[in-house]
Design a binder for these strands. Structure first.
Lengths: 175, 175
DNA sequence: AGCCCCATGTCTAACGGTTAGCCCCGTCGC
DNA sequence: GCGACGGGGCTAACCGTTAGACATGGGGCT
């Protein structure tokens, strides 16, 4: 997944690691800060080993730092084209929380409704943060669009938490 | 993440691998079919190596199959308690799609609006599937609740796709 | 001059999730 | 006898992720 992202970024223009990282951060806006620097290099070397990338030592100008500039091989270009055409929407990963409620309840470790409440507080906090961050971005920018998606997701998750609370209070009184 | 889930399941009652898998499938309903059987054993052995689980050879009854029944160690119990108390909501992973649009557009590989359209069709399909699956589950069951979360998420994602489409058509005409 | 912090830039070890696929064994049907 | 199938268990290998190590060079402070 991240491999394809790196490939796609290099499809626009060859870059060396740090440059690539900067371009990614730029495209993601404030959410780009979560990226781990090391990840880029791990991915680049693995892609090179797989033959999807090639290295072009930068011997240009007076640049004495031996940066490795990566470019796509034909295989890499094909891979990018395939990725663009693919549908790969992430499956919702609600299972973890759901199983936490079940486990807490059935093993008598904690009150599910309390857990739901804690999570709701956290999501509300994140929602405020995301809305504030979205406000700070220029209208119609990449980052603003991405943040809008985050906000919509959080709102949906909060609505699900409401449903969880209703369900588990109902069970508590029901059984 | 999955480690904690396995631990929490074993907090309710000790089990051997296949049993655990069955209990997980049961708790997740139709979504449990996506689980990979091998994963459970990988996780169990890693947890045992970490000292969070211990093995109890089942010498019970006439059961000649040498199943390994796993039970929590005190460390394991503490780990479960910590996990229950933690807030660990998954971060929305919209970045991949977002970067796909950017890459496709900036490298001139495909039309972003077309990509959005393809994804929307897929999400609508999944939404229908999830709603149908939810209808097939008993009211107030675990599986029904989980599926409701999936539906809410998909609806939010579809709304985000609308926003993406507006944004990118706007850019196309704007630049 | 000496010093320290910070940004740039790269890399590695190690862990954890995921997958595909192999293995044994018993049972049921043909 | 034989094959299919399901229960039950396991492994190799890949990939994502993280916390750090390492090197360099410039700017500011004393």
């Amino acid at each position: 997944m991240q491999q394809e992202i790196v490939l796609a970024m290099l499809a626009k223009e060859p870059s060396y690691g740090y440059q690539l990282r900067a371009r990614l951060r730029d495209a993601l806006g404030p959410l780009g800060d979560a990226l781990n620097a090391g990840q880029i290099y791990v991915t680049l070397t693995r892609l090179e080993k797989a033959g999807l990338l090639a290295v072009e030592r930068s011997a240009d100008g007076g640049d004495r730092s031996d940066r490795k500039v990566y470019v796509l091989t034909p295989d890499g270009q094909q891979r990018v084209a395939e990725w663009i055409a693919e549908v790969n929407w992430p499956k919702p990963d609600l299972a973890e929380f759901h199983l936490k409620l079940i486990a807490a309840s059935s093993a008598g470790l904690a009150d599910p409704v309390t857990i739901v409440d804690i999570q709701r507080r956290e999501l509300l906090r994140r929602l405020r943060d995301a809305q504030r961050a979205a406000m700070a971005e220029p209208r119609h920018s990449n980052a603003a669009l991405l943040l809008e998606g985050v906000v919509l997701r959080l709102q949906a998750d909060l609505r699900w938490l409401e449903a969880c609370e209703k369900n588990w209070t109902h069970r508590r009184s029901g059984s």
